[in-house]
Design a protein around this nucleic acid. Structure first.
Length: 454
DNA sequence: TGAAATGTTGGGGCG
DNA sequence: ACGCCCCAACATTTC
């Protein structure tokens, strides 16, 4: 149950400005991110924000004018248009965003406008948590230990008593941004409901069964995860709100495991902050000469959920149909692409970036590197998932596979994760595009080739 | 936040 | 009763 009474306030920058007449601005920036402009699923989510009568209270929208070229972008333009005395925002941490916002801050300050940025989307700043030697952490466990020993995380603000909004600010029409897919409308199957209220509902629904999280989170056939990642990525709820809501309940193994996931989010963000190349370059330099395979055919089969391996196809189809994939299955599909198919982790990263409603630059890059074994605190390359065993272990009755791969629905539990062993495999489902034993052996050989001579 | 290969142990069938 | 073999069950090592 969502507690009654006022919700904690998730926007430090807005809170700080609330005493003045407000212009709230949402900037769609398609230019400075370069290769990492919002993916398709993210654009759908941005376009699907609740369009209330009081839209002004949500935000004005402007397409971004690239800041460095045009002297501060539209934050500066609108500041001038409205005669604003101060501009506040919640900090972004992607390398391109840091550069952009630094430039904008300089321009605004130069025009005599007060600028202040806030920590709105993280529990800690990426530069705050350091080893005793003063370096950023590269291994999760010591990072997490250090994070738990920090001072208690600040409580979220209370909502300001009232806010009033500056009239007469020109806003783009959301529809004019053409954020929604035209043809085909692949997003029609998304059952995601964006919005602040929905985020709070998801949080408190989850807290009611958080005690079982440690086991249930690994079961794609069960509803054991928090479903908070898209809300969190879009700032519809803040990690401080989540942290304190969890801490206000009985502490148990499930709660601790979940808090640790918030820790992973922080860990990934600070890895990206300190390693701006994270999305493109393996942290483990040996992997720069890894003999990746190129196969459009195999990549396409993976993307479409037609690999012939049930748990993988179920995951990839869940992603395509719903814009989200269960975390355990993300690891399984990534392992197959990288290890058995030998395809570069960046191809997988790009696909996830375009299709996930919770796509986040740091988490995506750090986790793909983690699976590939080339990250800072990575699974060893030789740790290769067997998708059949993973399916049998985490989807024991095959419910998840049957839900997303209807061709296999008629198979018995015994054959559901390996239909090629069934007496009569379904004719409309492909044979595996890779022999799991051979794929594994090839991956291990390739890894030998880049290992440092002993 | 693996899996497979290899090693060890111990119970039980059997000559 | 005894040794031998088989093989599950578990542990350890290797990739």
């Amino acid at each position: 149950m969502v507690p009654s009474g006022p919700a904690p306030f998730r926007q430090p920058a807005l809170h700080a400005a609330a005493g003045q007449p407000l212009v709230c601005l949402y900037v769609l920036d398609d230019e400075t991110p370069g290769d990492w402009a919002m993916g398709g699923a993210s654009r759908w989510l941005a376009a699907s924000q609740p369009d209330r009568a009081g839209r002004k209270a949500e935000s004005q929208g402007r397409h971004a004018d690239p800041a460095p070229r045009q002297g501060g972008g539209n934050r500066a333009a609108i500041a001038e248009e409205t005669g604003a005395e101060s501009v506040t925002w919640n900090r972004c941490y992607e390398p391109f965003a840091v550069a952009r916002d630094t430039a904008i801050k300089k321009v605004l300050t130069g025009s005599g406008i007060t600028v202040e940025s806030f920590k709105g989307t993280m529990l800690h700043e990426p530069w705050e948590i350091r080893t005793k030697g003063g370096h950023p952490f590269r291994v999760f466990t010591p990072f997490w230990n250090a994070m738990r020993q920090m001072a208690e995380i600040e409580k979220p603000h209370q909502a300001p008593h009232r806010m009033h909004f500056h009239d007469d600010v020109q806003s783009d029409r959301l529809a004019d941004w053409h954020l929604l897919p035209a043809k085909p409308d692949w997003a029609k199957g998304f059952d995601w409901t964006p919005g602040e209220e929905q985020a709070r509902t998801a949080l408190y629904d989850f807290l009611d069964h958080i005690a079982g999280y440690k086991q249930a989170r690994d079961r794609p056939d069960q509803d054991g995860t928090s479903w908070l990642s898209p809300h969190l990525h879009w700032g519809e709820i803040s990690p401080r709100q989540i942290w304190h809501a969890v801490r206000a309940r009985p502490q148990n193994e499930g709660a601790e495991t979940f808090l640790k996931e918030l820790g992973w989010r922080e860990f990934c963000a600070q890895l990206l902050y300190h390693n701006p190349d994270l999305p493109t370059r393996p942290l483990d330099e040996r992997f720069r000469k890894f003999p990746w395979r190129r196969s459009e055919k195999d990549l396409c089969a993976w993307q479409r959920g037609m690999t012939g391996i049930p748990i993988v196809d179920a995951g990839m189809r869940q992603l395509w149909q719903t814009g989200w994939m269960h975390n355990r299955v993300r690891m399984i599909v990534a392992s197959l692409l990288i290890k058995h198919l030998g395809i570069h982790w960046r191809r997988g990263q790009e696909w996830f970036w375009d299709t996930l409603v919770d796509a986040d630059l740091g988490s995506n890059a750090a986790n793909w590197q983690w699976v590939a074994g080339c990250g800072a605190d990575a699974a060893p390359f030789f740790r290769i998932f067997n998708p059949v065993l993973q399916g049998e272990k985490f989807d024991p009755k095959g419910d998840y596979v049957r839900r997303f791969v209807p061709e296999l629905a008629g198979l018995s539990d015994r054959h559901i994760h390996k239909p090629w062993t069934a007496p009569t495999p379904p004719a409309d489902y492909p044979a595996p595009i890779v022999d799991l034993g051979e794929g594994r052996a090839r991956a291990l050989d390739a890894f030998q080739a880049i290992k440092r001579p002993a």
